[in-house]
Simulated scan of single mutants.
Amino acid sequence: MIIKGITAQITRTITEEDTAEKVKSGSLPVLATPVLSAAMEKAACKALAPFLSGHETTVGGSISLIHKAPTLPGHTITVTATVTEVRGKKISFHITASDENGDIGEADHDRFLVDSVKFMEKAEKRNERRE
């Protein structure tokens, strides 16, 4: 059962490929905000993984991220996701991120429980209407 307080942590060493310059989200060789966002979602998914069964998965619904400080390639980030609320299929998180020099960001993030088979069927039907 998914409950408030569940946490998970990931670490990741930043490479040149993770920079704003490389992912085209900016012009500087520092950790790109979209890469930080993806790491935050990964931590949230890790927190929920032990509680999912069968075709159950989660999808991201929203993320409100504050990127506070730059991280250079070669440094390691640590991202911690904590469940703050569970309301039906909606699971809310507060996520923090740091590197060796301190706090680099935080986010509030919502994910939703879905049946992966049904979700993909809906996605395919939606695509068929456009063709």
Rank of each mutant, 00 (worst) to 15 (best):
H94I: 03
K89R: 12
I91M: 04
F93G: 02
A81V: 04
F93T: 00
I95A: 00
G105A: 06
I95S: 01
I77S: 12
T76F: 11
S98I: 06
I95P: 04
P73K: 03
S98K: 14
I95F: 01
I91L: 04
T71D: 14
T80C: 02
R87A: 12
S92T: 13
V83S: 02
A97Y: 03
K89V: 10
E100I: 07
L72C: 03
A97P: 14
T78H: 04
I104H: 12
K90I: 14
G102M: 09
G105K: 02
K90G: 12
I77Y: 08
D99Q: 09
D99G: 09
T96P: 00
P70I: 13
V79G: 05
E85T: 02
T76Q: 13
H75E: 14
T71Q: 08
V79H: 06
R87P: 05
H75C: 10
G105S: 05
D103A: 04
H75M: 13
A81F: 05
S98V: 09
V83A: 01
P73Y: 09
F93L: 01
D99S: 07
I77T: 11
G74N: 11
V83C: 04
P73V: 08
V86M: 04
N101R: 14
F93W: 02
T84L: 01
T78R: 08
N101Y: 14
F93I: 00
A97C: 06
L72K: 09
G74R: 05
F93Y: 02
V83P: 04
I77V: 14
P73Q: 08
R87F: 11
T96Q: 02
G74H: 10
I95H: 01
G102T: 13
V79T: 10
D99N: 15
T84K: 01
E85F: 02
L72M: 10
I91R: 03
P73F: 07
S92F: 13
V79Y: 07
S92C: 10
D103F: 13
I95E: 08
T84P: 03
E85Y: 01
R87S: 15
I91N: 04
S98M: 13
T71G: 12
V79A: 07
T78S: 11
H75A: 06
A81G: 08
S98N: 09
A97W: 02
S98W: 00
G105F: 06
P73A: 05
F93S: 02
G74W: 11
E85V: 02
I95R: 00
V86A: 06
T80M: 00
A81K: 03
D103E: 13
T78P: 10
T84H: 01
K89S: 15
T76D: 06
A81R: 01
I77L: 13
T82D: 01
I104M: 06
E100S: 13
E106M: 06
H75P: 10
H94M: 04
N101D: 15
F93E: 03
E85I: 00
T96C: 00
K90P: 13
E85G: 07
V83M: 03
S92K: 08
R87Y: 12
V79K: 07
G102K: 12
V86L: 07
H75K: 14
F93C: 03
D99F: 09
D103C: 01
G74F: 09
D99M: 06
H94F: 07
H94G: 01
I104F: 05
S98L: 05
S92R: 10
G74L: 10
I91V: 15
E85N: 12
E106G: 01
A97K: 04
A97E: 08
P73C: 07
E106P: 06
